[in-house]
Measured scan of single mutants.
Amino acid sequence: VTTYKLVINGKTLKGETTTKAVDAETSEKAFKQYANDNGVDGVWTYDDATKTFTVTEMV
């Protein structure tokens, strides 16, 4: 189990959250659901070296 981080650069929501998951794909699903639940829709990137997802909304 690995800890993954999500950085949110939204128009109205900014911040970070973490989750523990067995792999990046599992954490990505959880993070995308979290973003969707909070009305964040944007461009996703992933940095495997830091286990960090970033979602950026276009303004």
Rank of each mutant, 00 (worst) to 15 (best):
V40E: 01
A49Y: 09
K51Q: 09
Y46T: 00
N36E: 13
T17E: 05
A21T: 05
E16R: 07
V59P: 12
Y46G: 01
N38Q: 13
L13E: 05
T52L: 03
N38E: 06
A35M: 09
Y34F: 12
G42E: 01
V40K: 02
T19I: 15
V22A: 12
N38T: 06
Y4F: 11
T52M: 04
Y34P: 00
T2K: 11
V7Y: 08
D23R: 04
T54Q: 05
A24K: 15
A21V: 03
D48P: 14
T45A: 08
L6T: 02
T18W: 15
A24L: 11
L6M: 04
M58K: 11
N9P: 02
E28D: 04
W44F: 03
G10L: 15
T54V: 06
D23N: 11
Y34E: 01
T18D: 05
K51M: 06
T19R: 07
V40C: 05
K11E: 08
V40M: 05
E25I: 12
E16V: 14
F31E: 00
G39M: 06
T18M: 10
D37H: 08
K20D: 14
I8L: 08
A21D: 04
T54R: 05
K29F: 08
N9M: 13
Y34S: 01
K32Y: 05
D48E: 13
G10Q: 05
T12V: 11
I8V: 07
D37T: 09
Y34R: 01
T3Y: 08
L6S: 02
T52K: 02
F31R: 00
V1S: 10
D41N: 13
T3A: 06
Y46M: 01
K11D: 06
T12N: 12
T26E: 12
S27W: 04
E57P: 07
T26D: 07
E16F: 14
V1P: 10
K5R: 13
T19W: 12
V7L: 09
E16P: 04
T2V: 12
T19L: 15
Q33C: 06
N9S: 07
K29Y: 07
Q33T: 08
F53E: 00
E25H: 11
A35T: 07
A24Y: 15
E28L: 15
A24E: 06
N36V: 14
D23P: 01
T18I: 09
V43L: 10
D37G: 05
F53H: 03
F53I: 02
S27R: 01
D47W: 03
Y46Q: 01
